[in-house]
Each structure stands twice: as structure tokens, then as C-alpha cells.
Design a protein around this nucleic acid. Structure first.
Lengths: 188, 188
DNA sequence: CTTGTCTATGCAACGAGTTGCATAGAAAGA
DNA sequence: TCTTTCTATGCAACTCGTTGCATAGACAAG
């Protein structure tokens, strides 16, 4: 039930509408927490009626008005309480691992194409992360001289580094998978 | 909807009861697909009534009887069809990443303890994987001389190697996270 | 001028996943 | 002896997540 908290964090980083949140969940946040716009609107509605977040109607020109949400004190308190709870173990759902083990009862070679396509997706994701790292975390860094390090920035960066490490590991493993699949069907 | 297929693969590797499947989902399979016994019993019931799997009542002594399932032809066909579908992108839910970014609005240092505990869990999991690798995938390997390589064995091994790579990457990243958190609160 | 895309929000229905509880006999340990 | 643990299956209620559809104005491309 941490979608609530993911949304709160995102709204603390930057207030926004349900639509804007949905786009963030397609981009940055979506790489460690997926959610559709339906889920987001439903949770926003519930958190609003619970007083966790405030709304502000923002009229716009050339496009529909939007409802911009920001975190209220009770929402911040709820987030803080959650942050102090033990970390839940990740829930994992890897279709690919199931398919690889299933391929033993079908045609292993038939998986090769799909794994190659899947590898492409991860290669693009890594490129995207690396571009984001260059864009957001290099350059005007004010290494340490005046003031404290920007905690938010540092923490966002370490999460991004996690994403990068994950994609690199995945690409290496997928090469291993491809070599294994080829090894099982050398003649074709 | 791949729980069906994860169960089919597991039953093809080794027929078993709902209870036995539930334990497999706590051990090996559970590291890339989580499921509770409730989910498993429900899916087994549905697959049985759809004719995907066969049941055999196995009387036992000293413990309750069990219903041992094995995959029937329609189940195998359904699995095969699924194997030829495109691979779904993984759905990810990393509480920890949310918490790290949330810590910017709370006390980053308070996370350190939890991350250390979390690191322990992953270190144990890695040790467990490595022990399994030694147990199941070294020794009497018949390197290539007579007959074809055992596809099932090779494919199980490459999935396990993926788990090992994931845990190693995670441990390295968690060290990075801890260093970052310490860097944000040097004085304590 | 029509089709498609983008912003923006939402309902309704369904399917997947979780939590709490229940039963019940056997064996092991306090 | 009593409690706990293990095997084994299941119901009921609930929450979470997904899919399909709907609205509606602005703008761009064909």
C-alpha cells in the first residue's frame, strides 16, 4: 500500500495534478514503482478526503483546467510514520524467468528473438538513465564549499545509480541467457 | 496473469500438491515470482476445472492426505502458447527507493539502521543462492561428452545466475546508499 | 476537413492479491 | 501435559491493480 507514499513523495518534490503524476510514473518514478492514471486518481481522491493533501483549481488556457495537489500536514505525518516502519521485501514478478524455465518443456530456441527484443528495451532504458544522470547530476555541483549538500539531490542521485546498476546487471545477465539458449540449439 | 504459468512450469518440473507448491514459492520460485497459498489453491482449482491439470488423491500416513496435481495436455498447450507471446515488462515495486527519496523530507540518518537490516537480508539470500549453486550445479556434470546437455538443468542454472547477479548488484548498491546516507549526516 | 495526438479527469467492471480465520491430526519440545 | 510446529486445504471479505470506455477542447498533420 505504498502507492500512497510514492505519490506523497512525488508531490513533496513537486506539487502537481493527477495527470502530471501519471506522467512522472511513466518516467522517473515508474522505474521503481508502476501505477496507471486510474490508480493515481483514485488514491488522490481518497487522500484528499482524508485531508492528507490540499487541492488548488488551476485554470489554464488552451487546455483543460487542472487540480493541483500539494501535501498537507497530516499527509506529511503519515509519510513520516511510514518511513519509520520496517522496509518491506520487494515483491517480484519476472515473467522472463518463468519463461526461461518453461522453455525446457517447449522450444528454447524460440525464446531467443524475444530475449533479444527485451534486451533492447533494457539497453534503451540504461541509455535514458545515463542521459538523465549527465543532465541532472553533473556540472554546477558546488562540490561542498558553501552550505550543506542538497539532501534531495543526493538521494535522487543514489536511487538513479541503483537504476543504472540494475540495468547494467540485467544486460550482462541477458547476454548470459542468450549464450545459454544458443548453447542448447547450436545447429539451425 | 502469469501465476498460472509459473504453477504449470513448477508442476512440469515436479508434480505436487498446493501445499508443496506454496513452499516452492517461498523458496526457489519465490525469488522471481511471489504467491501465497491462497492464490495458489484458487488458481489450482480453476485450472483443474478447466482441465489444464489432473489431480490424484494421495493418502498419507502420519499427515493429511494430499491432492497431487500434474499438468494435462491442455495445460501444456496453454503454457506453450504463453511462451510464444511477447515478454511483459517487469512490474517493479521498490519500497526502499520510495523511502530513500522520501527521506529528503524527513530524517535521512533514521534510514541507516533499516538499510543495514535490509542489506543483511540480501546478503543471506546471496549466500543461500550460492549454496544452492554448489549443491545443484557443480560436480557430476558430464561436461558434454555423451548425449545432449540437460536443457532443464541449464535453464534453471541461468535463472539462478540471474538471482546471484541481482543480489550482488543489490549489495553493492546498498553500500552506496549507506555511504550516501552517512555523507548527509556526518555528525551524530 | 478529418484524423490523430495531447492535456485532463473520471466511471464501471473485472481480475489479482492480501488478510484473517477455520479445521484437523501428528509429532516434537517445554 | 500443554503448547507449538508442521502438513494440508479452504472460505470470506477486502483492497489493489487493470482494462475498456467516455468526455472534451486545442492543436498539428495529412
Amino acid at each position: 500500500m505504498a502507492l500512497d507514499h510514492a505519490i506523497l513523495v512525488s508531490l513533496l518534490e513537486q506539487p502537481g495534478s493527477g495527470y502530471e503524476l501519471a506522467r512522472r510514473f511513466e518516467r522517473s518514478i515508474g522505474y521503481f514503482w508502476t501505477a496507471t492514471h486510474q490508480q493515481i486518481y483514485r488514491v488522490l481522491k481518497r487522500m484528499e478526503s482524508d485531508g492528507w493533501i490540499d487541492v488548488r483549481e488551476v485554470p489554464q488556457q488552451g487546455r483543460p483546467d487542472k487540480r493541483e495537489y500539494s501535501v498537507a500536514a497530516p499527509g506529511r505525518a503519515a509519510l513520516s510514520a511510514w518511513l519509520h516502519e520496517p522496509i518491506e521485501p520487494e515483491s517480484v514478478r519476472h515473467d522472463l524467468a518463468v519463461k526461461i524455465r518453461g522453455a525446457a518443456f517447449d522450444d528454447p530456441a524460440a525464446l531467443i528473438r524475444e530475449v533479444e527484443r527485451y534486451r533492447e528495451v533494457h539497453a534503451e532504458r540504461l541509455a535514458h538513465y545515463l542521459a538523465g544522470e549527465v543532465r541532472d547530476f553533473t556540472g554546477p555541483e558546488a562540490p561542498r564549499a558553501p552550505g550543506p549538500p542538497d539532501a534531495g539531490r543526493e538521494l535522487q542521485h543514489v536511487v538513479l545509480r541503483g537504476g543504472i546498476a540494475y540495468e547494467r546487471m540485467t544486460l550482462t545477465w541477458l547476454d548470459d541467457v542468450l549464450a545459454t539458449l544458443h548453447g542448447l540449439a547450436p545447429e539451425r
